[in-house]
Design a protein around this nucleic acid. Structure first.
Lengths: 348, 348
DNA sequence: GTGAAAGCGCTAACAA
DNA sequence: TTGTTAGCGCTTTCAC
């Protein structure tokens, strides 16, 4: 047995004394004589038959599998996305293939190309950066793709983006409203799209609040809890009364560094993070954070993709690419409660 | 074109003016005349050919896909496993199919049965509980399975387990060594294997330390940060000087509840958690935690599974099932630093 | 209502 | 070295 002993429609047909066509029909709920149905059903049950999904896929050209490719499954943001995507795909009867690109662009391109191997019916891609090669690969992709991230105009692909400009601005405005006037910013790398957007939101909000922009209050670093702590050491001489951090891990590291030197949160310095991951809630005091809608983006991306898959058999022309933006949401927690002592004494 | 316009070996053969067999050979690195090789290569490149993995799978009976099924991808423990598994499978050239069972036993059984559809070559299953049906399904599984969890003897399946008995005992012994004498225990549900094992470890360690076992110091609850906080309220009247929690989320919730009522950690009450997830590090003070080796277990499970897959073509008889136990590791952080005031005054 | 047969895309045995 | 062909397991005409 070249098959490993697994029953196939052939074994069932033999056992039931019918043709394989009848087996197929019965098993797919098509009409057949009562007697035939019964014999096939029984034979299948006795043999413990499970249809071979690979053969079926080859036949009808779809696998009922979807791929999600993201930089790192260790990051809470992507975990939230996986979770949301998983929920949608499962409900729709699709399996989910997970691919960690390790934030390597070539890996992302490889995933894009591998769409051609028909292993999955579609792809949700979360690229770290969009290069010309990405655009080329997206344009010529062998199947439907949804990008989670910001795409230049004209790329014929659905996308779901976060509004980190608005999100950053929300956080800064909130800190201002709670009486903070020297709002420092711990940002991620400045050469990434998210880094630039957060920076833009920060500056915009400062201006809107009528606050000066002080370079001494801004630090660029990489993400990660230790980086947050290190950044604090560099910022303290500038006497900030609030810390806005580009993600929760930075915020957490910053908070720890502050507490370790006896700085009170939020009485002396308020701290706000971004992503509203489990870490924000876990912090002490619990951290105010801006939810950029990872979950929403994941869900939406999955819905868009499924929608493309449905639409396939329909009208000849594919609908134009759609772009959704997930609105940010400020989650206020104890780490940014208004300072009890007069903020006026702190003003620069 | 029933195919969606994708090039196949037929299109390449036509373009290169050779037979499909030649195309296959060239593309699979078999010998051919220089001229033939070149023409096939070029045709394939021009057409942007990508081999159809489904067709290939049907041919050789393997998909190079592995499935990982666990209760909930939102849980840090499973995230750690996914990450480790992903790393191993990726290196071995396998794709990873993720399946969230939502902690529903029927879903676990369904996954087990669906191994028969040949969608993946093997399965790593992380069951919440092992029922007789599980054992039945595991015994008759259509492909290799590795279970992460404790399996009764005689089930012909590889497994990787955590040693939560030893892990719990380590935590308790550590608390004892740092001067604690009234060590409370916030455990998960008592009707689960992990719950029972942690309880056993707790009791064993108490006895080993010569401490009495006080029912008033033990609370059973479900996992989750809120449950931890609620448990603290129930425990405080019993005047504990240490809290051992069955996972990090409970510990975090407990810590928050303590801090909120002005109890100092670790001066007044020490807190230790379990799993050593990112949350433990995120807590304030950073939480001592017992690493039960989620990462190690994931990696090991993947290795065992791959090993089975390799072994397949080998000797007729399959090697006997193997069981690995991941050793627990105590990660000491600030939340259990020795109390500064004499522990003697606290003794019951 | 049922069976024979073609074909999805690929690999490999066999012939030439 | 190359081409023809069978076959992986299934669905689906097309005859009967």
């Amino acid at each position: 047995m070249p098959n490993g002993g697994q029953p196939t429609i052939v074994s069932i047909a033999a056992r039931a004394g019918v043709s394989i066509a009848s087996v197929s029909r019965v098993l797919n709920g098509q009409g057949a004589r009562r007697d035939t149905v019964e014999r096939v059903r029984r034979a299948a049950a006795e043999l413990g038959y499970v249809p071979n999904a690979v053969a079926r896929s080859l036949k009808d050209g779809r696998t009922r599998q979807l791929t999600f490719a993201m930089p790192d499954i260790g990051n809470p943001v992507y975990v939230a996305m996986v979770r949301a995507i998983q929920a949608v795909t499962k409900a729709a009867g699709y399996r989910l293939l997970l691919h960690s690109t390790d934030a390597v662009a070539e890996d992302e391109l490889a995933v894009l190309h591998s769409l051609g191997d028909r292993t999955s019916d579609g792809l949700i891609l979360c690229p770290i950066r969009i290069t010309d090669e990405h655009i080329e690969a997206l344009t010529t992709a062998a199947g439907p793709v949804v990008v989670i991230g910001s795409l230049p105009d004209g790329v014929p692909v659905d996308s779901v983006r976060a509004d980190s400009v608005a999100g950053s601005a929300m956080a800064v405005a909130h800190l201002f409203r709670t009486g903070r006037r020297r709002i420092a910013f711990i940002n991620g790398p400045s050469d990434t799209v998210p880094g630039r957007n957060r920076d833009l939101g920060y500056r915009t909000a400062l201006t809107a609040c009528g606050l000066p922009h002080d370079e001494a209050l801004v630090v660029h670093t990489d993400f990660g809890i230790d980086s947050g702590a290190a950044a604090v050491r560099r910022l303290l001489p500038a006497r900030p009364d609030a810390l806005f951090c580009a993600n929760d891990q930075l915020a957490l590291g910053a908070a720890h560094a502050l507490l370790a030197r006896g700085v009170r949160i939020p009485e002396d310095i308020a701290v706000a993070g971004m992503d509203d991951s489990a870490l924000a809630q876990a912090g002490w005091p619990p951290l105010t954070s801006v939810d950029l809608g990872s979950s929403t983006r994941g869900r939406r991306a999955a819905e868009l993709l499924l929608d493309r898959l449905e639409a396939r058999g329909g009208t000849g022309t594919a609908p134009p690419p759609r772009t959704t933006t997930a609105p940010p949401r400020l989650v206020v927690r104890a780490s940014t409660a208004p300072a009890t002592d007069s903020p006026v004494t702190r003003t620069a």
